[in-house]
Design a binder for these strands. Structure first.
Ligand SMILES: [Mn+2]
Ligand SMILES: [Mn+2]
Ligand SMILES: [Mn+2]
Ligand SMILES: [Mn+2]
Lengths: 225, 225
DNA sequence: AATTAAATTTAGACAAATCTAAATTAATTT
DNA sequence: AAATTAATTTAGATTTGTCTAAATTTAATT
């Protein structure tokens, strides 16, 4: 059986190995707010269950099975977040904690029914893609605002680092998920940007903020045949 | 903290003590499908947390605190069951197991939002009352069909024992929650009943079935001033 | 009242998940 | 290459929840 703690480990490993291929013990311990020794203990158990490819001192990554399990947890997490925001009127900053619990409810049928009830949403309230029932993830061509060319209207689809301070400044500038905006001017001196938000006046944002705002071209997919 | 296992114990004790005032170790072990020795272990922990009034060999019952905690778990259980049936199209016979997990999600705000989202339902899909946010339970004047007088139209509000066999026979006779019916004839020989279901032909049901069908007078509460 | 049976608790064990402190291996610096 | 530092693992302990088997208490019978 895959316990709650194992699911949390699988999910964290999945996210960490997206960046670099292999994950290290210390990284995982930091991500899970636990101790390296505890991680090592868990790694052995996951390896025994063939969910993890792991040799001591060598780093590790999920097996095919492990990846499948992790994606199902992520699917549940994001669907529940969507439910909390869209149906129960929660703010997007308060749903993560609750979804951290809900993601461990085991019924597969429940998840699929929830998915249908919500109308098969593509992304969670933070703009992250929701894996489908078979574990496929529609990866999105997301770029960070800092890398966007001038005068190209896009939609905000994600926030990379969600600290309270970060959210505060976004709120202040009327930037949130779904906001449509384009870059009007870039200042090489400090790499700050002047941004036009649809239906709003111009605002200036710093390079630090721009790096954390993820956007996607707004083009409707079906239109292009 | 109140763990999942503790919550399950509190809830089971609450239900058992409704009938008789005091609960016994064996009873609780049977209800939870565990061993008497395990129950004793847990009783000590619950007593230490002042959730339980307990003296060894003497039986036990919930303290005020314990009752409060149990009712909150029951509230969550029944709200989630309602959600599963009304929003996710589950059958009433398949929701209990899933709610057994969902009832342990801790966020109080989540429960209250869910309650509002569902329109503050009064009873769960099995006809059992849903405690309100403050833990108040609107107790219902439920009687079993076997005790109902002739020619009094009532509404089915609960099924006492929900085995698959039981549900099959009810399904066959078109009796379900909310069904309006009245007793037309009682046969003393075997205590079977002839029942008229609103908008349907007469059916005959056995004493065994009648004992497990719970009904409530249909009178609208507000009308009586 | 003595005996037997049933219910309950205690004693001791085990698995899961975590921790601290110490040992080991790997990586980095001199 | 040797020494130092950092990362990782092992050893041993702890907590929680559960179990079996044995002991104890209470209840029921003879
Ligand atoms: Mn979690
Ligand atoms: Mn999210
Ligand atoms: Mn439960
Ligand atoms: Mn119910």
């Amino acid at each position: 059986m895959i316990s709650v703690s194992k699911e949390n480990h699988l999910k964290a490993i999945f996210h960490l190995q997206q960046e670099k291929g292999l994950v290290t013990t210390n990284e995982l311990a930091a991500a899970l707010q636990t101790r390296p020794a505890s991680v090592t203990d868990m790694l052995k158990k996951l390896k025994d269950q063939k969910l993890l490819i792991y040799e001591r001192y060598k780093g590790f990554k999920l097996s095919g099975e492990g990846k499948k399990a992790a994606v199902q947890v992520i699917r549940k997490h994001r669907l529940w977040e969507y439910f909390l925001v869209e149906k129960l009127q929660f703010g997007w900053e308060e749903v993560h904690e609750i979804a951290e619990e809900l993601e461990h409810i085991s019924s597969k049928k429940l998840v699929d029914r929830l998915d249908a009830f919500l109308g098969h949403p593509e992304t969670d309230p933070h703009g992250d893609p929701i894996p489908d029932s078979q574990g496929r993830i529609h990866s999105r061509r997301q770029v960070c605002l800092a890398e966007l060319p001038l005068n190209r209207e896009v939609q905000v689809t994600g926030i990379a680092s969600q600290t309270a301070e970060m959210l505060e400044i976004l709120q202040h500038n009327h930037i949130r998920l779904g906001t449509r905006l384009e870059i009007k001017k870039k200042f090489p001196f400090d790499e700050s940007l002047e941004v036009k938000i649809r239906n709003r006046p111009l605002v200036t944002i710093s390079a630090q903020v721009a790096k954390n705002v993820l956007v996607k071209d707004d083009e409707p997919l079906a239109e292009k045949r």
